[in-house]
Simulated scan of single mutants.
Amino acid sequence: MSLALVIGGGPAGLMAAERLAETGARVIVAEAKPSVARKLLMAGKSGLNLTKEEPFDRFLAAYAEAAPPLRPMLEAFGPQAVRDWVEGLGQDVFAGSTGRVFPKAMKASPLVRAWLARLAGLGVEIKPRWRWIGGAYRFDTPQGIQEVTPDVVVLACGGASWARLGSDGAWTALLEDVPLAPFQPANVGFRVAWSAHMRAHFGAPVKGVALIAGSVRSRGEVVISAEGLEGGGIYAVARALREGAPLHLDLMPDVTQAEIARKLARGHGKASVSNHLRKALGLDPVKRALLMEGAPRPLPEHLAPLVKALPLRLEGPRPMDEAISVAGGVRFAALDSGLMLRARPGVFVAGEMIDWEAPTGGYLLNACFATGRWAGEHAARFLRESG
């Protein structure tokens, strides 16, 4: 029986292992951490967004320049396939009003347990605390140095964020012959040097706003933290911000500037500016605080343009290890259409190791599943054709 080695026990690696085992290969999954799927389980604490239901062209567009190479993989294992696969593991799913798909359990642990049971039934061997250290697939393990001689390999070692969960990027030192794009934080918060008056709002959500970064506009919630801005709204424009676009907030995205100006023109008598904004526009305390933070001093006479496009000065992204995901990794040019490394026949790559990025909202996990399954399928084909 052919031996397939999968390095990395995240969603991409486990999906590759499942597909290889289904084709009859003996599969070993080497995982550096004490257990598999640690990042998936962490993501599941906030609901586990599995995929996104929307027209396929719109879904694909979320992957930007990586869309063409990813297209066949996402066509083969797209949103409906993800739903079917999850339900096949006995986990019911539902789509929210925005099309985001979640397990009804709203956590990852039941899904992971069912998945591991399926893999065990297929004969997949999981080796925890096996850290790849190079050579001909040598591993540092609790039993000492172990060496594996596989017939095919799938690398699914993750990106370079959340190192404590396994994605530390250390594998880059073991692929010196492979073209790599530098890692950069994606889906990450941004630092803001807040004034003292903002301290009262640390931890507060900002709802019903639009974020504008260059040509990118996002409707989404953000959270004010002591360090800056966090949350899905800022993640959606993180790439544009990372590339140098300034950030503006539209505090009333459903109201025109002209209407805002009309309401503000009624005058506020002896009321403070903050109270006038509350009474005339209905701005909550957090939005009023942001407006005072971003407005120039002295306050301009006309505030309507600032309500619609409030500038916030950012001081760069949070550290890469705090990012939900990263850009960078193995360039698509280094891979063939089956995700095999051109420089290393019989070695395939999947998941966040590859140079692609996408916003949160189901796109990240779907592409990890899809690339893992694609790599597993083509690794199995390699075994058949070489055996």
Rank of each mutant, 00 (worst) to 15 (best):
L60F: 03
Q80Y: 12
A120H: 12
G78L: 02
P55D: 07
M106T: 13
E125M: 13
Q80D: 15
E75H: 11
W132M: 01
P110N: 04
A117M: 12
S109C: 08
L89P: 08
P69C: 10
A117E: 15
G88S: 01
D140F: 12
P110L: 03
G90P: 03
D57N: 13
D140H: 13
P72C: 05
G99E: 05
S109H: 13
F102M: 06
G78M: 01
A66M: 02
Q80H: 14
M106S: 13
V82L: 06
A64L: 15
V82A: 06
P68S: 10
L122M: 10
S97L: 14
A67I: 00
L111W: 08
F139A: 01
M106L: 15
T98Y: 10
V124A: 06
L116W: 01
G78A: 04
L111P: 09
P79E: 04
R113M: 12
I126G: 00
I133Q: 12
R118Q: 11
L122E: 09
R58W: 09
G134L: 03
Y63N: 08
L122H: 08
T98M: 10
V93G: 02
K127W: 12
K107S: 12
Q80C: 12
A108N: 11
A66L: 01
E65N: 11
G134Q: 07
A81K: 07
A62F: 02
P110D: 03
G96L: 04
I133C: 10
V82C: 10
P79A: 11
K107D: 07
V101P: 05
L70C: 09
M73Q: 11
P103L: 05
G135A: 04
R118N: 10
Q80T: 14
Y63G: 07
F94P: 08
L122W: 02
R138C: 11
A108L: 09
K104N: 12
V86E: 04
R129E: 13
P103M: 06
P69K: 05
M73A: 14
P110V: 01
G78W: 03
V86A: 08
G121K: 01
F77A: 01
F77I: 01
L122F: 05
L119A: 06
I126L: 14
L111Q: 06
R83D: 11
I126M: 11
Y137T: 05
E75T: 11
Y137N: 11
F59A: 02
K107Q: 14
I133L: 10
V124E: 03
Y137E: 13
I133F: 07
R71M: 11
R131N: 01
K127I: 09
V82W: 00
L122V: 10
V124M: 07
L60R: 02
A76K: 08
M106E: 15
F59L: 00
E75A: 11
V112Y: 00
G88R: 00
A81D: 07
E65L: 11
E65K: 13
A66T: 01
A95F: 00
F59Q: 07
